[in-house]
Amino acid sequence: MSVDGRAVTEAVAGLPLAGNEEGLIPAFGLYLTRHYAPYYNAVSYAYLHHARDEGDASLAKARAALVEAGHICAFNTFGGIMLSQEWEAVVAPMIEERADWMYGIVAVVNALGWGRWSVEDLSQDEMRIAVADSYESTGYLAEHGESELGGVCFLATGGVAGLMNLLYHGDITNRPALNPTYYAELFGNDAGFAAEEIVCRAAGADRCEFVARRQ
């Protein structure tokens, strides 16, 4: 690995990402918000618990919908960042091989307020990521106590799958257009990666761990 993760994280954390005269944050081809983790947690877990009360089918649908939101996030946010001028300026000079793209984007994630991500193992067929202080598990524990529903880090689960789909199913290094057609190519069939949260802090673990594998 040739990426200096700390330097990347510090560089991204130092970017002036605040609202312009219209109160908007256009960056990386997106409109960003510096949003409230407790808001995301409140609405996501209200939905999760509502679905649980409706039964297994609704609960499965809710989990899938919340993970799908993570896929959307990864595709657009991580993809947009990896195609940005800021990536070219800060991360690209450190990249020597394909895996470095992953170490670079994970270092960027660590500037987003999502907790501390680290790549534990990476190959073209599988990735394991550990997250300390994930905002989802932190919020769940604070509001609901220990989870009886297993892992609750749905955004992160979708995000981990999305990272692998961008780099080892699709090819973000070839600078594809991040449009609905490409999204369907990466996420709309069983040929890509899916992720699961194998342990979650909200369910009693010390940290959250994810694995993404080819389906």
Partner: peptide, 21 residues
């Protein structure tokens, strides 16, 4: 309050999921 960056794609996708569900 904990603050996290997210984009309009995620914000709208999550809201749509909750409205649908």
């Amino acid at each position: 309050q904990s603050l996290v960056f997210h984009c309009h794609f995620y914000n709208c996708q999550l809201q749509e999921a909750i409205e649908d569900g």
